[in-house]
């Protein structure tokens, strides 16, 4: 059955092609991220995130976990959040707001580029994701009372 062979080769070949398309983006990206880490570029991005913390009504110390989550993903961001909370650098209110923001919006570089690789509009994707998460967090922050004062 020639037909079955064609389907199987299409199934394997197409899958490999998709992986290759994404590998071309992800592989250099991972190297760039390590370089960024070692050049302390994160501190600079962290400065850039400081206005965000103000709008979101969270403590200035939230800028670092926010940056890590935005760049490296939810798991890394959560790790930093848990660590900061343990060390007492992050109040409960900031912790909840930063987590809500990051749950909606994380690993933005990798996620955006992966979807761009298969044909999505990256500008749309990134802008909508960032703005929506920001607006949502600001709205919740207005409703959320200062948890630490209640104690």
């Amino acid at each position: 059955m020639l037909d079955i062979m064609a389907i199987i080769s299409d199934g394997i070949g197409g899958g490999l092609k998709s992986v290759l398309n994404i590998a071309i983006i992800v592989f250099p990206l991972m190297i760039i991220m390590e370089i960024a880490k070692d050049l302390n570029i994160l501190d600079k991005i962290s400065d850039f995130c400081k206005p965000l913390t103000k709008w979101m009504g969270v403590s200035k110390e939230s800028a670092f976990p926010l940056t890590i989550g935005l760049v490296f993903g939810l798991a890394y961001g959560a790790g930093i959040i848990i660590q900061s909370a343990k060390e007492g650098n992050l109040d409960k209110r900031s912790l909840i707001l930063v987590s809500i923001f990051l749950v909606c919006c994380h690993a933005v570089i990798e996620d955006t580029l992966i979807f761009v690789a298969v044909g999505a509009n990256g500008f749309f994707l990134l802008t909508i994701r960032l703005l929506t998460a920001l607006v949502l967090t600001i709205l919740i922050s207005k409703k959320l009372p200062s948890l630490d004062k209640e104690k």
Partner: peptide
Amino acid sequence: TIKRGAKNGLNT
């Protein structure tokens, strides 16, 4: 740095 990045990239 490059080695770590390449390793992460390959794993991903």
